[in-house]
């Protein structure tokens, strides 16, 4: 077997690593805009940030269809995810429970993912956005549950229209998708309950 076809290992200690990853995600989504670090003790497949890979290892399984960009789906990332999590990779964004998107790509927009329905808003998708950095970009101000007053974040490497999309998403509340921005071993949660204001 050539090295190219080898699937990289996942968690070395699945029970405790997924627990730690989950707690980081829980903190990230319950206190939106705070930077959380996850134990980066794995080598993520090509095209995937460590935080994205860890979040999926901790949460995804055969019950959760995953949407990946075409390049990732056909590459080692798709294989890796199928092997470790047993997930179904779907081609249609609207069918996914978890999705990984590239922060700079124009498509798909957040509106393409399942926002849940009014009786079951929990059936919405969770979108992991891979950005260039979680700091150093144009600032936005967050408010809402989990935030005492307001909180400023400045992620970098996201497409220009993403904040407008997020405002639209927040307007759907209690429907809407939940976002986790991932870069390196850092993650930053932006659930649908968070209201976003762009700096003018």
């Amino acid at each position: 077997m050539s090295a190219q076809n080898m699937i990289a290992p996942g968690f070395s200690d699945p029970v405790f690593q997924s627990q730690a990853a989950f707690r980081a995600l829980l903190d990230a989504l319950s206190e939106p805009g705070t930077l959380r670090r996850v134990d980066g003790d794995i080598t993520p497949p090509e095209g995937m940030e460590a935080a994205t890979a860890i979040a999926l290892l901790a949460l995804a399984d055969y019950e959760t269809p995953v949407w990946l960009p075409q390049a990732l789906r056909d590459g080692p990332a798709g294989q890796w995810l199928r092997f470790h999590c047993g997930v179904t990779l779907v081609a249609e964004p609207g069918q996914a429970t978890f999705a990984v998107i590239d922060g700079t790509a124009a498509e798909p927009t957040l509106a393409a993912f399942n926002p849940g329905n009014d009786q079951f808003p929990d059936r919405s998708a969770t979108v992991l956005v891979q950005g260039a950095a979680l700091e150093g970009g144009a600032g936005v101000t967050l408010s809402g549950p989990g935030i005492p007053g307001t909180r400023d974040i400045a992620p970098n490497g996201l497409r220009a229209g993403i904040w407008a999309e997020l405002e639209e998403n927040a307007a759907l509340y209690p429907l809407g998708v939940d976002l986790v921005l991932c870069h390196g071993d850092g993650m930053l949660g932006l659930p649908r309950s968070t209201r976003i204001e762009e700096a003018r």
Binding site: F22, A58, T97, G146, D178, R192
Partner: peptide, 15 residues
């Protein structure tokens, strides 16, 4: 645990 954790994350997103 994964199933409960996914439910918890959605619960936190829709208080």
């Amino acid at each position: 645990k994964r199933m409960i954790r996914r439910a918890l994350l959605k619960a936190v997103a829709v208080p």
